[in-house]
Design a protein around this nucleic acid. Structure first.
Length: 416
DNA sequence: TCTGGGGTCCTAGGACCC
DNA sequence: TCTGGGGTCCTAGGACCC
């Protein structure tokens, strides 16, 4: 049996941990640039706030209900996520961290409601984060069980084990809530008269394969209780790494864009080194504001290759700027830009180029020292000049909560 | 005025090989 | 007039996830 532990309204719950005044009050967390709603407490959900809704459209509603609004604070969420995962690992031997707020748990040894409940209570007590746990024979069914635990079961734990229970649940489970069925697939399925998980199980397998690829077939098998996805215990190396942002204010000036692209490229290089990977391709893209119908639209991108795979900041930044130069036009105003490094290989397995002139050992030691100094002294203490100093393109974050757990100056003090 | 960011996998089609 | 068979690799686009 496989369990899925999923934190309830994770980002909103994180904001509550060190700010108990928010309990039982509506909370929403916004995306970067304070643009859209990306997390809601139960209170906000019942007030009708929708996932992904742009904030400016619902300003009055927010004020009317005195909703507590926060900019996203990923330093806080990341740290609390680590605490939740470590707590789960203290109770279950085999844990797959699936996302920032979800983990699959191997329950093949012992499945009881009591065990699940005591795990849930421990996470709550040790981290302050409420979780729900669904347990079933396959990952897809565990996802489904979790969905039910969250919505309908007060104690927050639901075990989906015997066949007749599974059948009863599938019969009322909406097709669009299945794991792996997004908006497009749901629409197509409904057009074919398939509205519940049970109807999906009974659909013709060849038809599913044709319309929803092998993933659809796997989902169908998993719902029937046949395992297609195992627990993945070792974190896998990323194949692509992306750093991109919308700008707080739109930018036209080449120098400013170059500073942003240089910063994004440098961040990609840092992420690569953290993964101990090198990349052999780099993609740079620009975007004008698609929501402004009067603006000239231009969404260029270009991919360039490295002769020798690299994770050297200087090499990656200079290649990114070369790419930028070839797509930049000065008659557009840009809203967003980004850098994606691709075709990654483990840094120990880099294929050298016969004509390479770079002393790669020396460069690697240099990068190692830069990373180390920045870790000790603070982010960007050593940086490339191309990144600039002003960060004029920076995000809007007007309602940021303190980094309670990751910054000394933000640690709570207690008056006795 | 104001609309997020970071990933993965699959498939079809084109280019190429012998 | 008649024009094979069996592959691989790469990429763009589309779907999905959180």
């Amino acid at each position: 049996m496989i369990g899925l532990a999923d934190c309830n309204n994770f980002y909103a719950s994180c904001e509550r941990v060190f700010n108990p005044q928010l309990r039982n009050k509506p909370v929403v967390v916004l995306s970067n640039n304070d643009g859209c709603i990306i997390a809601r407490s139960n209170e906000s959900k019942s007030l009708g706030f929708k996932m992904g809704e742009p904030v400016f459209k619902i300003k009055e509603l927010i004020e009317k209900h005195k909703v507590n609004v926060f900019s996203s604070n990923f330093a806080l969420y990341g740290d609390l996520s680590d605490r939740v995962m470590n707590t789960l690992k203290s109770e279950v031997e085999r844990v797959e961290i699936y996302s920032i707020d979800e983990a699959f748990l191997d329950f093949s040894d012992l499945v009881t409601t009591d065990r699940a409940l005591s795990i849930k209570r421990k996470v709550q007590q040790w981290t302050g984060i409420p979780v729900s746990i669904g347990i079933a024979p396959t990952k897809s069914l565990a996802k489904l069980a979790n969905n039910i635990a969250k919505k309908y079961v007060k104690k927050g734990v639901f075990i989906l084990d015997d066949e007749s229970l599974i059948k009863r649940v599938l019969n009322v489970f909406p097709i669009e809530d299945l794991w792996g069925v997004g908006r497009k697939y749901a629409k197509r399925l409904k057009q074919s008269g398939i509205n519940t998980a049970l109807e999906f199980i009974h659909a013709d397998q060849e038809w599913i394969r044709r319309n929803f690829s092998v993933n659809g077939v796997r989902l169908q098998k998993e719902l029937k209780g046949e395992k297609c996805y195992d627990l993945e215990l070792r974190p896998t190396r990323k194949k692509n790494i992306c750093t991109s942002r919308s700008f707080g204010k739109e930018i036209k000036d080449y120098i400013r864009i170059r500073e942003a692209i240089s910063t994004f490229a440098n961040t990609c290089a840092i992420k690569l080194r953290k993964e101990k990977s090198c990349c052999s391709k780099i993609l740079v893209f620009l975007m004008t504001n698609p929501y402004n119908p009067n603006a000239k639209q231009y969404h260029p991108h270009i991919t360039l290759d490295f002769q020798t795979p690299t994770n050297d900041s200087a090499e990656i930044v200079s290649m990114a700027n070369k790419a930028l130069k070839s797509i930049y036009r000065n008659d557009c105003i840009y809203k967003k830009a980004g850098v994606i490094v691709q075709n990654t290989t483990p840094q120990e397995e880099v294929q050298m180029s016969l004509f390479d002139k770079v002393d790669r050992d020396k460069r690697r030691r240099l990068m190692y020292s830069v990373d180390k100094i920045n870790m000790l002294m603070g982010k960007d203490k050593i940086r490339l000049a191309a990144q600039g100093f002003e960060r004029r393109w920076k995000l809007r974050q007007e309602r940021l909560s303190p980094c309670y757990t990751t910054r000394f100056s933000d640690i709570l003090t207690i008056d006795i």
